[in-house]
Simulated scan of single mutants.
Amino acid sequence: MKTVTVTSPEQTMQLGAKLGQLVQPGDLILLDGDLGAGKTTFTKGLAKSLGIENNVKSPTFTLVREYQQGRIPLYHMDVYRLEDGGAEDLGLDEYFDGDGVSVVEWSEFISDLLPHEYLRIALSRADELVDTRTIKFEPNGTHYQKLVDELEG
């Protein structure tokens, strides 16, 4: 596990961008944290480094936003509304097994549908008054451990 402390939204985006340079088709990134922790900000950085010019915003009401114009497609999911179930009918595994990188916010609500290997990134506010965030990278599987190791390089 790797833990990073950032002190601005720009640093959160830079960290996302660094990861975006490393991800490959079929990668699954889980972003967990409270409202306002920086999940979408992290995704914006990742998208930018993939070459996606569109404004990335939280897909809270659409559940999945697809961005096709980058180096590889980005499937940005917000499954917060699935807290009470219903995810099994959405075919999320088609995204997970697809040709792009899947980024899932609030993944705890679909934990029973997740593959065994993924990279969980937990974002938390270190201080309510400032933009300081603690970001923990928790790899599950050797591929994701390599990703985290490369982030440190």
Rank of each mutant, 00 (worst) to 15 (best):
T134L: 15
D84P: 02
F137R: 03
K136V: 15
D78P: 04
V104T: 02
N54P: 08
H116V: 10
D131C: 14
K57G: 10
T132M: 10
R81T: 13
Q69C: 08
G91K: 00
D89N: 07
T134W: 12
W106D: 02
I72W: 05
A87V: 03
F109A: 01
I72Y: 05
F96L: 09
Q68L: 10
T132S: 13
V56I: 14
P59Y: 01
D93E: 15
E128K: 15
Q68F: 13
G91C: 03
G86L: 02
Y80D: 04
A126C: 12
D93W: 14
L74D: 09
R65H: 12
R81K: 13
W106V: 03
I121K: 00
G141M: 13
V56W: 03
P115T: 10
I121Q: 01
S124N: 12
G98P: 04
L113K: 02
V64D: 05
Y95L: 05
D112F: 09
R65D: 05
Y67K: 10
G85Y: 01
S102N: 05
V130H: 14
G85A: 00
H143M: 13
K57C: 12
L92C: 08
H143L: 12
T62W: 11
A126W: 11
A87I: 02
D97A: 14
S111A: 13
M77G: 01
I110A: 09
V101D: 11
E66S: 04
R120S: 09
G86E: 02
D89A: 06
I135K: 05
P59V: 04
L113V: 00
G85P: 01
G85R: 00
D93G: 15
N54W: 10
T62M: 11
V103A: 08
E105Y: 05
L113A: 03
R125L: 09
K57I: 12
S124W: 10
L92Q: 04
I135L: 08
L82F: 00
G85S: 01
E108N: 13
Y95D: 04
N55M: 06
D131V: 14
S58A: 15
E83Y: 07
I121D: 01
T142W: 10
G91H: 03
D131M: 15
E83V: 07
D112Y: 07
T142Q: 14
R133I: 09
V64R: 05
R133D: 12
L90I: 03
F137Y: 09
S111L: 11
M77L: 12
L82G: 01
G91T: 01
I121R: 00
Q145E: 13
P59H: 01
P115I: 07
N54F: 09
V104R: 00
L113P: 01
W106C: 01
N140K: 15
D97M: 14
Y95K: 04
A126Y: 13
D127A: 14
G86C: 05
Y144D: 14
T132I: 11
T60K: 06
F61G: 09
L114S: 11
Q69F: 05
T62E: 09
R81L: 12
M77D: 00
E105K: 08
G98R: 04
L74F: 12
V104I: 06
